[in-house]
């Protein structure tokens, strides 16, 4: 978007978006909460300098104390430190997998909706992916590519990429369907014909006229996608197919603690609460963003 700002004597449109977002209390609360979570996982470990991998058999299953504000786990590792480090991975996987999955879904949806010729092929592909049982596919993907990727990119980066890619590859279908339906409806509107009559080529009709008008369902998909990606990552880790067992993620921590839920409910509640707060804040933020981006809102 190059030319527009100079044409608005009244205001820059991004200021208008910010203005609408700022007046939406729920969105603002969601945004602040999400920012708080990011700060917690990004800066937390710099302030709370306890090694999350430090095993301390003498201090297993401790309750909250000054040395361990949230207690310790079954190996005596500090829960607060693990929450901070685990959150980094969880949030990164959630956001990256969502972005990749939604991006793929939007791409396929727009191409299928706009170019009728490709519609049949792409939609059958979408149906195919929808019909596949997700978890076995994920397991096969991980088994097949884990070694190769780890060898090429290093253990951590390889597994991160694999988990993100596998989640994205199995979660784009609903976005693609919704976007396709919306694109097909918008394609018939007069303003698309008007753009064609000017000679606007398809790629700019898509970026300028179609994408901004399918933003609402995309943002809804994206906010749900973050939650879904965090859940799927937890399941993968639980099955031993995600990150190695000693790498903390929020989902992994919940699963590890489920066995001890009767005795130490805090160990499930804390990571569970962080997952819920993330999903909640992203939903409110996404909903506010959707409303703020619509000039009619």
């Amino acid at each position: 978007m190059t030319e527009p700002t100079a044409l608005d004597p009244l205001r820059n449109q991004w200021w208008a978006v910010w203005d609408r977002l700022r007046r939406n209390r729920a969105a603002l609360a969601g945004g602040l909460l999400f920012a708080g979570l990011l700060i917690f996982v990004a800066l937390g470990p710099l302030l709370w300098m306890v090694d999350p991998w430090q095993i301390d058999p003498d201090n297993r299953n401790q309750g909250p104390s000054l040395g361990h504000p949230l207690g310790t786990d079954q190996l005596g590792r500090d829960l607060l430190a693990r929450l901070m480090v685990g959150g980094r991975i969880t949030l990164a996987v959630g956001v990256a997998a969502m972005a990749l999955g939604v991006g793929l879904g939007v791409l396929i949806g727009v191409v299928a909706g706009y170019f009728r010729r490709l519609d049949g092929v792409l939609m059958r592909l979408t149906d195919l992916f929808l019909a596949l049982p997700i978890l076995p596919i994920l397991l096969v993907l991980v088994l097949l590519f884990r070694e190769a990727l780890a060898a090429r990119l290093g253990e951590a980066a390889g597994i991160f990429l694999l988990v993100v890619g596998a989640i994205a590859l199995t979660s784009w279908m609903h976005t693609a369907r919704i976007v396709r339906a919306d694109v097909m409806a918008i394609k018939e509107r007069d303003f698309i014909v008007a753009a064609q009559s000017i000679g606007t080529p398809p790629r700019r009709i898509i970026t300028r006229h179609i994408l901004p008008n399918v933003l609402s369902p995309v943002i809804v998909s994206a906010t749900l996608g973050v939650a879904g990606a965090i859940m799927t990552e937890s399941a993968l880790s639980f099955l031993g197919m995600g990150f190695p067992p000693d790498v903390p993620t929020w989902g992994r921590m919940v699963f590890d603690a489920v066995d001890y839920m009767q005795q130490f409910p805090g160990r499930v509640l804390w990571p569970g609460a962080f997952i819920s707060l993330t999903v909640l804040s992203v939903n409110y933020l996404g909903d506010g963003l959707r409303a703020a981006l619509d000039p009619r809102g």
Binding site: E3, P4, L7, D190, F191, A194
Partner: peptide, 15 residues
């Protein structure tokens, strides 16, 4: 219907 609801009038004329 012939104007994109998300584009300002000035930008529509400028397209």
């Amino acid at each position: 219907a012939s104007l994109n609801p998300r584009i300002t009038l000035g930008r529509a004329i400028a397209e």
